[in-house]
Amino acid sequence: MLDIKRIPLGALLGLFFTALFLIAAIFAQWIAPFGLGEIVGNVWEPASAQYWLGTDNLGRDLLSRIIYGAQTTIFIAVLATALSFSLGSILGFTAAVVGGWFDTLMSRFVDLLMAIPTLIFGLVVLSVLPSTLVTLILVMGILDSTRVYRLSRAVAADINVMDFVEAAKLRGEGRGWIIFREILPNALSPLVSELGLRFIYAVLFLSALSFLGLGVQPPAADWGGMVKENKDGIVFGIPAALIPAAAIAALAISVNLVADWILNRTTSLKGGRA
């Protein structure tokens, strides 16, 4: 069984902060001391007992905005990851097991999409599409699903040629059994850790877009956008922009630590028991 003492310190920290961010995101409306757009003080006030992280470029409470920002950022990233993951893994598994023209067609198309750096392609598409939530999630999810596709296809293709899968095919098992009972349980550990990485990537991608002014649009708050709003303060020595940037880094590192731990834990498991 899972023993809490056996979890390495890094993973424990990762779990703690990931949970913290998740809680902040889910209960933002109840936790945040001030409203999202509420102007409570002067521009760029330093941290104080009242405003723990100070105020932003319009005099809004930075902590409250960080908490609301967590909600927007994590919400979009989670949906984009869910999309990229389901799309990529289903197509990747199918391509590996079915093979033939479907595999060739899909793989060449993915090669093509990956020949353009994701951010550049994202910018190209966003130059004509409006930056709405739906567009952002679709663009991020579809572009990122290429990576999930490559990984799941490779993992599934590796497993697909193992003797135990051949044995199942010789037994006459259907495609469903082979994908879900033979391949999937063995592909789970690299995929779960990839899930973490894809989520991080989605957070970073969204933040970069928002930072460039092409992601989440005001008045909604997300972390990348907050960096953009407050970046002008930096040259005056006001570190307000660094706080949402640090929040992004902290979330990404926490999830990375957890993903790393899951990967190590599950790959060292030869059998099915912990």
């Binding site: 193992m162 044995a167 063995n186 059998g271 099915g272």
Partner: peptide
């Protein structure tokens, strides 16, 4: 028609 393989390690699903 049944079959037995050379490498028993990989002839069985490690998760079963």
């Amino acid at each position: 028609l049944q079959m037995i393989y050379q490498m028993a390690d990989v002839a069985m699903n490690p998760r079963q």
